[in-house]
Write a protein that binds this DNA or RNA. Sequence first.
RNA 1: GUGAGUGUAGCUCAGGUGGCCAGAGCACCAGGUUGUGGCCCUGGGGGUCGGGGGUUCAAGUCCCCUCACUCACCCCA
Length: 440
Amino acid sequence: MGVIEPRVFKGTRDFLPEEMIHRDRIIDVMKSTFETYGFEPLETPALEYWDILTGKYGEEGEKLIYRLDYKGGHEVALRYDLTVPLSRVIALYPHLPKPFKRYQMQPVWRADKPQLRQGRFREFYQCDVDTVGSGSMLADAEIIIVTHAILSSLGFQTFRIRINNRKVLAGIVEYTCGDQSRSADICRCIDKLDKIGMDGVKHELERCDIPDGSAQKVLKILEISGNNETVLRDLERELSVSQMGLAGLSELKEVFAFLQNNGLPQDRYTFDLHLARGLDYYTGPIFETVLTDQPHIGSLAGGGRYDELIGLFSGIDEPATGTTIGLDRIYTAMQQLNMLENVKTKTQVLVTLFDDTTFKQSMSVAQELRDNGINTDTYFEQHSMKKQFTYAHKKGIPYVVILGPDECAKDEISVKDMESGEQKTISRNALIIYLQELTG
RNA sequence: GUGAGUGUAGCUCAGGUGGCCAGAGCACCAGGUUGUGGCCCUGGGGGUCGGGGGUUCAAGUCCCCUCACUCACCCCA
């Protein structure tokens, strides 16, 4: 009988120890940053009822939801993001004090085509921070500030947080076309400007059957450029006919004022009229973070305000805003930018095992090291020293403790530094202090 | 979903016009060194050449089909 071929489902991955050490570090940075800003942890199930997820992400998004056959029907699905589950939680537990600020780091699933270089997978971790129950632009600004804090702490140098507002986009549609049903098409064309240029957008608008007059107006709006202040001012003049557009611009002005007040470096964020974002549920400010020198990797983070999503579950709208930070995108980027430290293991010491006459002392030394906060591995078999050292070398354990008959007879102990190759024999009772100094 | 490319050992890849072409490096295991890793030396295990069909005396090599993977687009984290 043949063996079962070992393999993982396309777009999913195993995280081996060396990789987990890096991922854990990223998670630690995020978690502590979230907590610094007063966000609290939440977890929700991987599975949600189908009707909870459906109708929230738009046509494109919904095709990517993993449906599961269950008792012959299509009742459940793997969650597609963490925002919709959060909204379900808010509606389900109305007693939660507002504003409710939570962070959540869990995998989500999307049935699209994986693209390793771009950091695109079918199963990946999202790290979400959201504030529910406040319509203040302070909440939106705080989300942007947290995003900035995390990426800075991780050592990213070239990221840019693009900021726009769905109300502004709606205003543009109202002003140029007057017909909100064309909103999605127009936004998609606008979103493409960076990639296909002005002429490309022109063709795209034609392809979407946007009337000539409307298309001209769209192009005119897209020609507005300059710094955040002048662009906002020019837009205000163009969009004066749209209440919605003006409301969006005033929200943006508030957000930018808060960011500036908070001392966020100017080159880290920018008003970007071309940012649209695909998900249906956004209603106000939207943001997306990209690495300017790694454009092939999609966004590292993305989010926005969704004041009408929770109402779909509770019947009462509840203002909410937040962002997703993509752990796997961040990890992929750090890998490609050589930002990961060269650490193979958290184990600091290997205690070798010599023979029957010494193993009890090996065990008690190992325990003493652990009791003093030193991560210690022990060898279980009476193999040659060569084998035991090879094991330590391969695992990247920095120090090896040797207790052979020689050491035991004199109540001494030998410690080898695997990197320098130096070995020292010291008295048994000096070991803890000695190793604590070495391992810092 | 659309387009392009690539499939030979665990990994990275050699293998003109079909004929001693089943190979290298790295990795792995053992030994050289029975109290010491890395470097070096010696030896070893491991491959239905993605799969199926066809052409041929002969196919890793040519033709067809299929599958898988990668890249780009779309969309996103």
